[in-house]
Design a binder for these strands. Structure first.
Lengths: 196, 196, 196, 196
DNA sequence: CATGAATGAGTATTCATTCAT
DNA sequence: GATGAATGAATACTCATTCAT
């Protein structure tokens, strides 16, 4: 791993754990094993580094989510696949994922975050979910709901469970699976109902 | 409003908007219209002020939630009442509510927050919810789910919608009502299923 | 002398000797015998301190020059009095005067100097001189010259001698008197000429 | 123009405009269109570059002044020729001339300037002027004055006008000519006086 | 009660310089 | 010759805290 990448990874760790303001450039440099001068050399300012770190993480996740929802399946299955991929990604990146809690429109502005850019980046997460809901309504796997509202609620639901898992001491083994069940129960067009 | 209260309210605003590290004591004093010396005079250190501000907000909310869930009703109705009260409280305290996003175990530790104390305080929110789920299972209004997992998921769901509303530009008029519907659909013991 | 004044005097010394960029706030604080935090407390930024220091010195000098040129005398005598006062002031403030070399439109912009403000302040020095020249032309003590050009040249002349005295190793005991003679010879309406 | 020369010219520009401390090696390299590594490669340190830049400019000017004063003429004419050449040189090198304001004993020490070397270099400018005054006194074109003091005063006079022209917003079309007239009036052995 | 003068630790950033390629 | 990665000293500025009034 070259030093530029090392700095990026270290920044994701440090900003994720401490937040933009509390994390220090010196800390990032220390974790990356480089001098702090090199951080400015490659990334300019702390703010630019913060955005680079957050966007790099977001981009990686977006790739996974696209892959998870692109195959042939019902809308409801796509949502389940989306959630599975999302949760898997968080578990595989426990140390560095939380940068997304900070560098996201769902957190209060950290100084130095361009709100518009971040909202733009994150709207993709919502949009993919919205497409899945729309698809599910069409193919009959999801009941009639507002795709827009639902996508927002589902995303909040997902992030809520991720926060609980990564941040709180309120641990629960099956929370990810149960969240998928929760969502499935809420959205599924229960076949029994039609049959009655 | 006496100056001590003014400082507390100002602290909730400032810490909510900027976070523990980025908010300054001078800023708090400015918003409260008092000299910065008075802040230490009443609250000692910045950290103590942060905790006082967060706990004051949490306590107010807890009072509301207890009131909302204590009457005679089914478990499912209690959950709906809990959520309604929670959402109402956030809207009535838009400016100062976000202190809870910072001073909560669902956010990364802000330096100076005693994790244990905070977890303790917030476990009440989960426990009240858990009691409602248990009650609903008993009275037949809620299907058979794990009360513990479900309480965590529901809380994440609620906070997700609050964050979306208070923090993001992804606005949706009916998100609070839809979140209640979402939860209701997921938990309700659908009478039709039994009938089949 | 209170600490705010001490900082101002120290700033005049430090900026005068080393220039805006090379002088450090720590150095200023050290000379003033205060902590460097107090400098920001009173003056905000280095730039504001620089301007405050320069303008304080300029204002003091302006007072002297007005006093020197206000009595009843010919224009030529007023110019001599102006120069005498100017040179006396520089000698009495050897240590701190050079701030004016830096904070003046006759020096290259130091970053953080508002060019317009400085030009405004210094235009007074030129204008007073111009009035004297005009007066001298009217009262016959000064030959027919362009008051505007002449004022600029005289000011350059004065500052040139001050720079030589305060900054260079090219010392000459009588340079101030000789400069006054030089100017007098150049401007005087030699009575002999009229008589011819 | 080879890269070494390009660096030297760029250094004259940058140091002239910003001063030794504020100008950066990177800035010089950027203006010259070379990598910053090449600057050290050719000139060693920033200080050496500064001196090289200043002395190169001083040497060019000295050549012009010698040429201007070497022909057959009276001392007064030599001084006029000196001034004309000096002013012409400044106008032809507007962008890069101000390095001499910085790298001269008439400016406060920029750190890294060897005072003695600079004084030595600049003493030539004064000496040439002094020779002209002495010559003029001998040949009767200049009245009886102290050559030493006068040379210093004249040099200050010249530089004052150059500073006014290159640095201040106090522009005056005829300032260079008027300065020559000013000096001429002051020094000339007015023939009319003798004639009376 | 209330103010704000005073302090100094901590941080981001700039920048000259070195050195491997 | 020429480049730019890498370093770390130096510096302006912020800010919590203390304390005299």
């Amino acid at each position: 791993m070259d030093k530029k990448t090392a700095i990026l990874k270290a920044a994701q760790e440090a900003f994720g754990q401490r937040g933009f303001t509390a994390a220090t450039v010196k800390d990032v440099a220390g974790r990356a094993g480089v001098s702090f001068g090199l951080v400015s050399h490659y990334f300019g300012s702390k703010q630019e580094l913060f955005l680079a770190a957050g966007f790099d993480m977001a981009d990686s996740l977006i790739v996974e989510l696209h892959a998870a929802t692109e195959g042939e399946m019902t809308g409801l299955e796509a949502i389940q696949s989306y959630m599975t991929a999302y949760f898997k990604f968080t578990e595989e990146n426990r140390e560095r994922f939380p940068i997304l809690f900070r560098c996201s429109p769902f957190s209060h502005n950290e100084p130095g975050v361009d709100v518009a850019k971040v909202a733009d980046k994150f709207s993709v997460f919502i949009e993919v979910l919205e497409r899945c809901v729309e698809k599910g309504i069409k193919d009959g796997s999801i009941r009639a709901v507002s795709p827009e509202d639902t996508a927002l609620i589902l995303y909040g639901n997902i992030v809520g469970s991720v926060r609980t898992t990564l941040l709180t001491p309120f641990k629960s083994r099956g929370i990810f699976e149960e969240t998928i069940n929760h969502v499935t129960r809420s959205l599924a067009n229960s076949p029994g109902q039609d049959g009655c």
